[in-house]
C-alpha cells in the first residue's frame, strides 16, 4: 500500500506538471493524503518519497542529458551571490529536499484533515453516486 501511495504521488505529479503549475505535486500529495489514509506519519513518508524521488529523478534526467552544462552555471551563480561554494550536487540536494519536505507535509496535512469517519462518508457518497468523477 505504501509503495502504491508513493508511486501514485510520483506518477500523478509527473503527469500533472506538464500542464499545471510547479506546485502541482504538493496538491497531488495533499489529495492522496485525503483519499487514502489517515496515518499522518505514513503519509508524510509517502509524500516525502513520492515528490522527492520524482524531483530528484527528473532533475537528474535533465541534468545528465545536458552534461551538467546549465546546472554548473547556476551553481556558479549561487556561489557568486552567496559567496560560498555551491556545487551541482548541493543544488540537487536542495531541490530534492525542498520537494520532499513540501510533499511530505502536504500529504500529512491531507491525512490529518480527514478522519476515518469523514473518509467513510466520502466513500459512501461516491459509491451512491452523489459525487461522480466526470471524465471527458
Amino acid at each position: 500500500m505504501f509503495i502504491v501511495k508513493v508511486l501514485a504521488i510520483a506518477i500523478l505529479s509527473f503527469l500533472g506538471t506538464f500542464f499545471l503549475p510547479w506546485y502541482t505535486p504538493f496538491i497531488v500529495a495533499f489529495l492522496t493524503g485525503i483519499a487514502l489514509s489517515n496515518k499522518p506519519g505514513n503519509n508524510f513518508l509517502a509524500g516525502l518519497f513520492g515528490v522527492g524521488l520524482f524531483w530528484l529523478g527528473y532533475a537528474l534526467f535533465l541534468d545528465i542529458r545536458n552534461d551538467h552544462l546549465l546546472s554548473g552555471k547556476i551553481a556558479a551563480l549561487f556561489s557568486d551571490s552567496l559567496k560560498t561554494d555551491i556545487s551541482v550536487g548541493i543544488l540537487l540536494l536542495i531541490t530534492t529536499l525542498l520537494g520532499a519536505l513540501l510533499g511530505g507535509l502536504s500529504a500529512m496535512a491531507g491525512a490529518m484533515i480527514m478522519d476515518d469517519g469523514s473518509r467513510a462518508r466520502l466513500r459512501k457518497a461516491v459509491k451512491s453516486g452523489r459525487y461522480t468523477l466526470k471524465m471527458k
Binding site: W22, A59, L62, L70, S71, S81, T95, L98
Partner: peptide, 20 residues
C-alpha cells in the same frame, strides 16, 4: 534579486527544465 526559489528550483518548471 533572488529568483522565486520554488518555481526556480522545480525540476519541471525551473532552471533544470531549461536544460532540456
Amino acid at each position: 534579486d533572488t529568483p522565486a526559489l520554488g518555481s526556480f528550483l522545480s525540476p519541471t518548471h525551473g532552471f533544470w527544465k531549461s536544460a532540456a
